[in-house]
């Protein structure tokens, strides 16, 4: 039931591939977010730059963790 006839590939494998591709694209977005936050902290310094950079990097790490989870678990 879960295998596509003729091809013989599990449908969940195909879904996994699409999920991984989407997460890789999201990872690129997370890297862009980190870069943009760096640029903004260089443009304007008010005194809260460290926490904001931390949140941006935490988001990047989160994206990496979700990608790894998708690769290993799915």
């Amino acid at each position: 039931m879960e295998t596509i006839p003729l091809i013989g590939i599990s449908i969940w494998l195909i879904i996994k591939i699409f999920v991984v591709i989407a997460l890789v694209i999201y990872l690129v977005f997370a890297v862009v977010v980190v870069r943009q936050v760096q640029l903004m902290t260089e443009t304007l310094k008010v005194g809260f730059e460290a926490p904001i950079k931390l949140f941006a990097y935490a988001h990047l790490v989160f994206a990496i963790v979700v990608l790894l989870a998708a690769l290993l678990i799915l």
Binding site: L23, A63, V66, L74
Partner: peptide
């Protein structure tokens, strides 16, 4: 489902 929930939180 687990990865979907992780993705939602992300």
């Amino acid at each position: 489902q687990f990865v979907a929930v992780l993705g939602w939180y992300m």
